[in-house]
C-alpha cells in the first residue's frame, strides 16, 4: 500500500488557487467570475489529486508492482471533473458574450423586482395597492428604477418582469433563434 499522507506542496497550491478563485468569483464581471470558476475547479482537482496519496507508478497490472501503484480512482474523478468544467466554461463564455451583446457589458445586474420591493419598504408602502383603480404609480416608479451598473439608461423597456413579453431591452438580433428553427 502506498503512502497516503498528503503532500504539503499540493495542499498549498490548492489553497492559493482557492483564494484566487473565491476573490474572482466575488467580482461583478462575468469574465472574471469565469476565471474564478476555473481557478476554483482546478483547486478542487488538486485536492482530489491529494486525496489519492502520493504518486506512484502507472496503475497497470503486470507493468507496475502493485505496492507502488498510484491510486487510479482520483485520476478518473479528476478527468470527469475536468470535462464538466470544460463544458461549464464554454457555457459561461457564451453567456458573457450574450450579456455583452444585449447590454454592452457583462456585469451581473440586480434584480428589478428586488429593488422595487426594497424601495416600497423604504417608502413604507403596502406590498400591493390597496385601492383597486390606480395601477400606474408602481409601474411609473418601476420605469424610473435604474440599474446600478448602468450609465446605459433604464435597463428594461417594460415595468414588470413578464417573461413572455420580450423583455430584451434592445432589438438585438437573436442568433440562437436562427439555430432553433
Amino acid at each position: 500500500m502506498i503512502d497516503t499522507s498528503p503532500s504539503l506542496a499540493l495542499v498549498v497550491v490548492a489553497a492559493a488557487l482557492t483564494a484566487v478563485g473565491v476573490y474572482l468569483l466575488l467580482e461583478r464581471s462575468l469574465t472574471r467570475v469565469l476565471l474564478g470558476v476555473i481557478f476554483l475547479s482546478n483547486a478542487v482537482n488538486v485536492v482530489l489529486l491529494v486525496s489519492g496519496g502520493r504518486a506512484g507508478g502507472a496503475p497497470i497490472v503486470d507493468y507496475t508492482d502493485e505496492d507502488s501503484m498510484s491510486d487510479p480512482l482520483p485520476q478518473a474523478l479528476i478527468l470527469t471533473a475536468i470535462v464538466i468544467t470544460l463544458g461549464m466554461t464554454a457555457f459561461l463564455l457564451a453567456m458573457a458574450y450574450r450579456s455583452w451583446q444585449l447590454n454592452q457589458h457583462d456585469e451581473v445586474q440586480d434584480d428589478l423586482e428586488d429593488r422595487r420591493v426594497a424601495q416600497r419598504a423604504a417608502r413604507d408602502e403596502a406590498a400591493y395597492l390597496s385601492d383597486d383603480d390606480g395601477t400606474t404609480t408602481l409601474e411609473q416608479e418601476a420605469a424610473e428604477v435604474h440599474d446600478e451598473t448602468g450609465d446605459d439608461g433604464p435597463p428594461s423597456s417594460g415595468p414588470g418582469t413578464p417573461p413572455s413579453s420580450a423583455p430584451g431591452s434592445h432589438a438585438v438580433p437573436t442568433p440562437e433563434g436562427g439555430d432553433a428553427r
Binding site: L25, M95, V108, D111, P155, S169
Partner: peptide
C-alpha cells in the same frame, strides 16, 4: 436561459454562478 433574452440572461447568471 432559453432563448437568451436579457431578463433570462440576468437571472440565469445568478443561478448558474
Amino acid at each position: 436561459t432559453l432563448g437568451g433574452t436579457g431578463e433570462r440572461i440576468r437571472a440565469g447568471t445568478i443561478y448558474i454562478v
